[in-house]
Design a protein around this nucleic acid. Structure first.
Lengths: 254, 254
DNA sequence: GGTGGCGCAATTGCATGCAATCGACTATAC
DNA sequence: GTATAGTCGATTGCATGCAATTGCGCCACC
């Protein structure tokens, strides 16, 4: 009796949705994604404490899942985890920030040279569409521009067609986003939409040398514009602004 | 009463060992390190199942810790984690293997240019010492040569003086080690000790161009030598050879 | 008034237990 | 004999509970 329903679901899954079940994410991944977004959108500021209990309550899950998410983010460098003293949003040092940008420059150089080898009209359309979103967000002066700018680079990595490359560009891009939120002036959203524009154009022309050069100077420019002085960390209290992120996870939305 | 002993230890720690307590690793990290070593030393072969229960029993801890370690290794790409179906040592595809080596080449290029800027006689001595270990291991034809070769590159990254760079070189180096164990002939331990020799010499001369060129050709050579045909995965049964690794963790050794 | 030790509250570290899920096996129908 | 449905054992997913650790405030003592 207890098994009939389950069996149906089970066999249904196995037969028709084999791939979907592989794609199904664990809940801890949903939570770490939510926290990642919150960090990149400056809802959680560097230095904020992230106690397992409160987070668990907010997300409607137990500390087990929260801890898994935090541990993951710590491995990515977005969160600092100190033994027996809890987690907090990472506060990368200026030197660390420079190192990350340097590494990013090096890696995205590879992205360009790969993406240009497999460029197609469809991919160009995708890039244009993303750029349009960036421009729109800038006009509305929405605070998600850092995230969108980061996602432009991630989209490039996706189009490069190497999952490995994508994974590292994502991770390093996120870390750069975090450092920007710590060091950059809040509304220096001139983070190079124009430069994204030029990169797309070079890719469209198939001009690899130019595209690589542009990407290199784009990234060093972003770093130079941003990494000047360190802003002091925001309030250490822990905000309710996290609620919308939690709601999405609780409702099982992406 | 219950608190006197604890307090003593506590205050002792706090006062005299502040740094040590920060350095103290969580047990899950010890476990993931142990598993990582086991994978790189071909004690755990690609495709082997890694059930939480058996591992927990062997390491003398609960499934909670094992799972954390596995999750970490999965994030690093050494382990594949399929929903509700457990973990196994990753079996990177040939294409993935190529991508990783390509990325590695790109990153280690940066390592060279940084390490050469901060080269000192002491660092050269360290490099020489490591090379000596490699040669020794080769003569004894010990099976840890893949690990040692990997650690040569990691040592370089350490000497580059960027924790961020070190972290990624480590991770990608480990993944390359894993792919080598899947694709390379077991005793092709000619994995370029001679080439390591030449790289050190170039670094000693301060010849950045040459060193970068050597590193690039070294890595592509390693990849080309190795990534030819795929060996079929070893037995899926799960070996007791893990015991020495487990013992170290249980005894609290590094 | 400053220094050093102790207890307490808050928080994490980890083990355990129960329910859900998966793959394999068996039985039944055609 | 093949194909489909149902069951079972093994294994993971997640919540909960208890013990250990940490930092802070309090008090004594110099």
């Amino acid at each position: 009796m207890q098994s009939t329903i389950q069996s149906c679901i089970h066999h249904y899954c196995c037969r028709d949705l084999m791939k979907a079940s592989d794609k199904a994410k664990h809940r801890n991944e949903l939570i770490s994604s939510a926290l990642r977004s919150a960090i990149l959108e400056r809802v959680l500021l560097p230095g904020m404490k992230l106690p397992e209990d409160s987070l668990g309550e907010r997300f409607g899950v137990s500390r087990t899942l929260i801890r898994q998410a935090l541990e993951r983010l710590a491995a990515e460098g977005l969160v600092e985890l100190r033994r027996n003293r809890g987690a907090m949003v990472a506060k990368p040092s200026l030197e660390e920030a420079r190192d990350i940008f340097e590494l990013r420059t090096q890696i995205e150089d590879l992205v360009i040279s790969r993406v240009i080898k497999e460029m197609t009209p469809e991919k160009l359309v995708e890039l244009e569409a993303h750029l349009a979103k960036e421009i729109e967000a800038e006009h509305a002066s929405e605070p998600i521009s850092i995230r969108l700018a980061t996602e432009f680079h991630i989209l490039l990595a996706k189009l490069a067609g190497s999952p490995v490359l994508l994974r590292y560009v994502e991770e390093i891009g996120y870390r750069c986003g975090l450092t920007l939120s710590l060091y950059a002036r809040p509304h220096s959203t001139d983070c190079g939409i124009q430069e994204h524009r030029q990169i797309i154009d070079s890719l469209a022309r198939g001009d690899e040398e130019k595209a690589r050069e542009l990407m290199r100077s784009h990234l060093t420019a972003v770093a130079d514009r941003a990494l000047i002085t360190r802003k002091e960390a925001g309030p250490l209290v822990y905000l309710d602004a996290l609620e919308p992120y939690a709601r999405k996870v609780r409702d099982g939305q992406e």
